[in-house]
Amino acid sequence: MRGTPPVTACQPANPWLAYTARIHAVRDETPGVATYDLMFDDPALADGFTFRPGQFNILYLPGVGEVAISISGDPHDFSSVPHTIREAGNVTHALARMREGETIGVRGPFGSSWPVDECRGKDVLLVAGGIGLAPLRPAIYELLARRDQFGTLTLLYGARSPDGLLYTDEYGAWRSAGIDVQTTVDRAHTGWTGNVGVVTLLLDRLPLPRTNDTLLLTCGPEVMMWYTIQAAQRRGLPRESVYVSLERNMNCAIGLCGHCQFGPEFLCKDGPVFRYDRVASILKVDDL
């Protein structure tokens, strides 16, 4: 039987039960994207909610609906649980109209996680596109918190335009803590002095001295991940060293509703993070 067992004590006996959480703070990130810091009303949960990098929560707005959102905070910071959200559907639109102090429901955390432990002793390459940096940020925090366990750390991050780059005020601290952060944009505007072009251009010129001891973690639009993986494979990175985070329609998050099926996988409980060789064959089937 497939599936990852629940990892935290926060999982209720009834998986349909959402816990009340309060919007503690809202930070605008990029146009149409904001980060919502949530705090659970239940003190035991507020102190005890743990997750692994790459996992997601289901956020619930009563009367509107639920939406699956990756957790974008530091796994070791228990003060609040941040979710970086792009306004895209009815739930996220309604959320954008809510204010600090208002309550929503939260179920989670759900799903598989980035293989941070497997990264020990290896060089780690993170490649993100657009909002895809949000599910990777907890992994960045985790890697930096245990910096001496890893070889070189590199983040290659692309966005459509400079104002689409997330978390720009953190790059300085990340670099100081020991990760090479490189950004690129599809379209520059006046004042942008950085790279222009797709993220694989950054990858093509990156030294990869230890291809057999390098792990690639990537999250972004599927087509971006495709070309990233192709570029990495051309450089000799084995497919077993690649991890992707995938997205499909999610409704229940507990493997019961059938919506998020992708070939034999339930993205909600077998994913969203997969080792690439597990899903490589089905990723190239159209409309699956």
Binding site: R2, P6, G255
Partner: peptide, 10 residues
Amino acid sequence: IFTGGSYVDP
């Protein structure tokens, strides 16, 4: 489906 996996549907 409903009772054999990680999550049980009550």
